[in-house]
Design a protein around this nucleic acid. Structure first.
Length: 432
RNA sequence: GGCAAGUUACCCAAGCGGCCAAAGGGAUCUGACUGUAAAUCAGCUGGUGUAUGCCUACGGGGGUUCGAAUCCCUCACUUGCCA
């Protein structure tokens, strides 16, 4: 993968003497099992795992928190197992408000492949403490219902299962909960047990919203094997303004460049709130404590320069995509937002900037409305008209007053920049 | 298995024969102010495009009626109580 070189540049901050100290400083430990024991366990190389369920064709920023936590642990000498939920994805973990719709087996299997592929870009699968990929379908598919109920189910008390947040929230909601989703915690417990047996895996990491499912495994191992194993739960990343983190225009930010372009990724991070940017640098970059302290000062003294946001955007875009794509995204952002005068840019700069944006090929003389729809800036003609009425639409940075105005190419070029609002830009390439 | 209540747009939720493309929140989007920030204020939010039109939409299907989100039947799902 193109990001192998990026992996090689990563390291933990040597100013921390214990990996747990660094994780805590980065705000990555929301909950954990007994800290003393955890600290002791982490002082020598251990094997740990984190699971990713195939609920979509790509991982998103929430998963990136997990991936980076795993990577930091790997850099500290521990052995990561990246688990893809070929089995748990067929069942579905309980969401707080609604029952999931089951995806068919082919879809889940295809998504498993995609998630596995993405995992390979964030962890090192070569070298001395190489990561390994595991799929829980490998050990669950061989269980018969009877074996499952006798060997695993017997260790679970319904009272305790019901009291877990994810389940009780659903029991108290209108949606209720199916037996299928109710059983999810048992499957996750089984995963940990199997990995403990097969790989001597003694720690699991995951999101704090999964705490109930994480403890399912430690409890099971304690009962069956009489051993204490460990957990680290990362906090749910939230924004200072209370809005959901990791969404842009209501859509998730995906790690797959087909779903979220490097440019969109860069823009997302560039728009990080001042109040959040330092926390984000800690969680999503490998900058050291000292470097981040410098940015903290910059944010306090000259927030309008947005140095921290720029660095954050560049770093994370490189991490998720590549150095080259990250720099292109940055250059495109500078070109399109910078001077305000697109005419001063040469065709080459502008073309490469537009390549980062959604775009459409249209015949000369096409209507502005057509361009808005064709580029995907709006979803319907009505929405396009509404946007124009609201004064949201510009062509080549010049505001459009009426839908009848001509869609002119920029200067002597055969392209135009069309925008809805300040941040939604698209390119139009004229043919003929 | 029985009884009761419920299923409304992205989410919550009102409406209980015509004035319903559906109140009110929330969320997204847009404008102003700014730093591509936050906060604040304002506006939009089914489609078609200009027709007091038409199409689609109040869980699915069927019916009553000039007219149904609203009444009836039926199916599915959800919740609660009883078994």
């Amino acid at each position: 993968m193109a990001t192998k070189e990026t992996l090689n540049t990563q390291s933990n901050d040597p100013s921390f003497s214990h990996i747990l100290d660094e994780l805590q400083w980065r705000g990555l430990v929301a909950l954990s099992t007994d800290e003393k024991e955890l600290r002791a366990a982490l002082s020598k190389p251990i094997t740990f795992y984190c699971g990713f369920d195939p609920t979509a064709p790509s991982l998103h920023l929430g998963n990136l928190v997990q991936l980076l936590t795993m990577r930091r642990l790997q850099l500290a000498g521990h052995n990561p197992l990246a688990l893809v939920g070929g089995a748990t994805g067929l069942v579905g973990d309980p969401k707080p408000n609604s029952e999931r719709t089951l995806n068919d087996r082919e879809t889940v299997a295809a998504w498993v492949e995609k998630l596995a592929e993405q995992n390979r870009r964030f962890l090192d699968f070569d070298g001395k403490n190489a990561a390994q990929m595991v799929n829980n379908l490998d050990w669950t598919s061989e269980y018969s219902a009877i074996d499952f109920l006798r060997e695993i189910g017997k260790h679970y008390r319904v009272g305790k299962m019901i009291s877990k947040d994810a389940v009780s929230a659903r029991l108290n909601s209108d949606a209720g909960i199916s037996y299928t989703e109710f059983s999810y915690q048992i499957m996750q417990g089984l995963d940990f047990l199997e990995l403990y047996r097969r790989y001597d895996c003694v720690m699991q990491t995951g999101g704090s919203d999964q705490w109930g499912n994480l403890t399912s495994g430690t409890d099971l191992i304690h009962k069956v094997e009489g051993k204490s194993v460990h957990l680290i739960a990362t906090p749910l990343i939230t924004n200072a303004d209370g809005k959901k983190f990791g969404k842009s225009e209501g859509n998730a930010i995906w790690l797959d460049s087909e779903l979220t372009s490097p440019y969109a990724m860069y823009q997302f991070w560039l728009n990080t709130d001042d109040a959040d940017v330092i926390d984000r640098l800690k969680v999503f970059t490998f900058l050291t404590r000292a470097e981040i302290a410098e940015y903290e000062q910059m944010v306090a003294e000259e927030p309008f320069k947005r140095e921290a946001q720029r660095r954050l955007a560049l770093e994370v875009t490189e991490l998720v995509h590549s150095k080259q794509e990250s720099e292109s995204a940055r250059d495109a952002s500078l070109a399109l937002f910078g001077s305000g005068d697109l005419g001063s840019l040469d065709q080459k700069t502008l073309s490469s900037a537009l390549a980062e944006l959604p775009s459409a090929k249209l015949p000369r003389g096409a209507k502005i409305i057509e361009a808005l729809v064709a580029t995907g800036l709006v979803e319907s003609n009505s929405e396009a008209r509404r946007a124009i009425e609201q004064g949201a639409v510009s062509v080549n940075k010049v505001k459009i007053g009426s839908e009848d105005e001509a869609l002119e190419p920029l200067a002597s070029m055969s392209l135009a920049v069309i925008s809805k609002g300040k941040k939604n830009l698209a390119g139009v390439f004229f043919s003929g």
